[in-house]
Simulated assay, not measured.
Amino acid sequence: MSTDYQQAREALGFSLRELRLTAADGRLTGAQLAERLGGSWTKSKVSKLENGRQTATAEELHAWATATGHPEDYDGLLAQLRGFESHIRSWRRQLASGHRPVQEAITAEHDRTQVLTIWENVLVPGMLQTTEYARHVLTRHANLMQSPRDIEDAVRARMRRQAGLYEPGRTYRILLWEGAMHALVCPPSVLAAQLDRLASVVGLDTLELGVIPFTASLRIYPGNGFWVYDERRVVVEDWHAELWLDDADSIATYLRVWNMLRESAVYGGDAQNVIQRARRALNTR
C-alpha cells in the first residue's frame, strides 16, 4: 500500500474515532463499543481500525455508524472507503509473505465475478497458463522482486482459479497480442505446450479468446495488461505495483481501450491460425 493509501486509511480511522467519542448516548470506550457490536469485535480491532492499521469493510462501517447512533454518517464513511480502495498495491509489500497470498487475493476477485475482461500483451493470461508456464513466469517475478519462494503454492493457487473456465454462467473475454505467443519467458518446449493449450480452449463456451496479429491495423497501441472484473474494478499491473481502480471513470476508460483493441482481433479459426503460426515458428529456433 502506498503512503497516500495509508494516510487515507488513517483519515477514515479518525472519522470512526470521532463517531465513537460523540456517540448519541454518550462517549464510548473502545471496549464498550466492541461489546455493543458483539460477534468478532474486540477492543483491539476497534483500536486497529481507528489507528489505520486495519481496513474496515462496508458492513463494518455500517455496524459502527449504527452502534454509535450515527447511521446518517454511513454514506460518508463508505465514500471514504471507496475513495482509497482505488490505490497502488506495491509488489514489495504484497510479496512480503510470498506469492500465494497475492494469488489468493486475486482469486477472491475472480470468485465474485461473472464477466472477466482481460487484455494481455506480453504473457499468456494466468487463466490460460499451463502449470509449467506459470511456474517459469512466477519464478522470474520472484527473482526480480527478491520475494519469498513459495512458487509451488502460488502455481497451485493459479491453477485452481482456472476451474472458473468450466463453470456455467461465467464469461471470460480475453484479448491477447500475438507477441505474447512468441515471448520466450520459458524454454521453447514449455512455450510449445502452452500454445497447444491455447489452441485447445478456442471454442470453449465460457471463453471469448481474441488474438491481435502483428499485421493487424490498430486503433490504439497495445499498452500494458489489465483485468476488468465485471464493471466493478480494474487491476493494472506495472513493474513496481498493481493499480486497483474502482472509480467509474477509470473503469469506463479501460473498457473503452479494450473495445478499441477488440476491433483488431481475430477469433475462432482465424485465431487458431495465428496460434499455429507461432507454434511453427518455435520449430525454427
Rank of each mutant, 00 (worst) to 15 (best):
S2P: 06
D4M: 09
D4T: 12
Y5V: 03
Q6D: 12
Q7A: 10
E10W: 00
E10H: 04
L19D: 07
L21H: 08
A23Y: 00
A24E: 03
A31V: 07
Q32M: 12
L33N: 04
A34V: 00
L37D: 05
G39M: 03
G39N: 07
G39V: 00
S40H: 08
T42E: 04
K45Y: 05
V46S: 11
N51K: 14
G52R: 11
R53I: 00
R53T: 05
Q54W: 06
T55A: 14
L61C: 15
L61S: 05
T66S: 12
T66M: 08
D73N: 06
G76V: 06
A79R: 02
Q80G: 15
E85L: 08
I88R: 13
S90D: 11
S90L: 07
H99T: 14
R100S: 06
Q103D: 00
A108F: 03
E109I: 05
V115E: 14
E120R: 07
N121Q: 09
P125T: 05
M127K: 07
E132M: 05
Y133W: 13
Y133G: 08
Y133D: 10
V137R: 11
R140W: 11
A142V: 15
R149D: 14
R149F: 09
I151K: 03
E152I: 01
D153H: 13
A157H: 09
A163T: 02
G169P: 13
T171C: 10
Y172A: 12
L176A: 12
E178T: 07
E178G: 04
A180G: 07
A183H: 15
V185F: 15
C186T: 15
P188G: 04
A192R: 14
D196T: 13
S200K: 02
S200W: 11
V202C: 07
G203T: 12
E208S: 07
V211Q: 05
I212E: 04
P213Q: 04
S217A: 13
G223Y: 00
N224R: 06
G225F: 05
W227L: 09
E231K: 00
R232T: 12
E237Y: 10
H240I: 03
A241T: 09
E242M: 03
W244F: 09
W244N: 09
D246L: 07
A252D: 15
A252Q: 13
Y254H: 11
Y254E: 05
W258C: 01
M260S: 13
L261N: 01
R262Q: 14
Y267K: 02
Q272N: 12
Q272G: 13
Q276D: 15
R277V: 01
R277G: 09
A281N: 12
N283R: 15
N283L: 15
T284I: 09
T284G: 06
R285D: 01
